[in-house]
Design a protein around this nucleic acid. Structure first.
Lengths: 149, 149
DNA sequence: GCTTGACCTTCCAGCCATGGAAAGGTTTAG
DNA sequence: CTAAACCTTTCCATGGCTGGAAGGTCAAGC
């Protein structure tokens, strides 16, 4: 199985497979006599694991840990859970940051006439951040349905 | 006013001021005889505008547009509003992506015993994405209080 | 004057995960 | 035999910074 086949089968581009190999996320592939990388089903399996992890936003470093736990038959599920929870916390921080930006901008947009006149509260706020809009204390977003326990 | 003073006064690091100059976001600063960059209050004012825009997540390209509108006394507020609205849409896309990751992970975490045993639904899902968890239809998050009109 | 330390200058490299292109070798079908 | 579809390595670019190295400038204190 050449790299292109492994790429199609796993959903990881050939480029990224080579990259993952170069940074040590996956072991060096065996080579044919002519130097082509050769892959087996187990390799594709691992690549799919990586792909799915990336889709869930894990960094290469985190995936490295996850792969270690995956391979370790005597792992403790608590270790996996901790990695996942830390990642969730990270995602939530990023969500909160973006949400605060969006909220502030939404407030400003709502105040902007959006017509042919030059007066614009959005520019005014960028120029000199107003107190009311900026200083809103950080409100917790309501938990989304899926995250409720 | 040297670059360090401008940095302190604006909240933009000296490094970034040079960077913004190099990419054409701000005009080249005037120089002293010895080659030091020299800044006036108007420059600091502009840097603060940039800082605030970055804090709201605008890209350098978008800030370039915003600065143009800011300078243009005959701008239409509708133009500013459109830029802001597009940016809000972008923020919301990113939030939704992250939120979906967090939701999926939260579901998995909730299913994981988190004990000394190796069985782990999180790893199981990474290995072979389960249908129930992955295929949840995209649910709209409720609007946060600030974004309600 | 001379030293010291806080400035300033430019240039270069790295981060992260990825895409692209160049320049060449290999394999396979027709 | 040839064409096209592979594969290989290497370098470059992205965005928005941060850091460092090597060197010039300036102000205060001796």
């Amino acid at each position: 199985m050449n790299i292109g086949d492994a790429a199609r089968a796993s959903g990881v581009s050939a480029k990224m497979i080579r990259y993952y190999e170069s940074v040590g996320l996956i072991p060096s592939a065996t080579r044919t006599d002519s130097g082509y990388r050769s892959y087996a089903d187990a390799d594709v399996h691992r690549l799919r694991f990586i792909r799915r992890s990336r889709d869930l936003g894990f960094s290469v470093t985190e995936i490295h840990n996850l792969l270690g736990l995956w391979r370790d038959r005597s792992r403790k599920s608590a270790d996996v859970k901790r990695v996942a929870q830390q990642h969730i916390a990270d995602l939530r921080r990023r969500i909160d940051d973006l949400q605060q930006m969006a909220d502030t901008l939404q407030t400003l947009v709502a105040c902007c006439a959006g017509n042919d006149r030059p007066d614009c509260p959005i520019l005014a706020n960028l120029e000199r951040p107003g107190h009311a809009v900026t200083a809103t204390r950080k409100k917790r977003r309501p938990r989304s349905p899926l995250t409720q326990r």
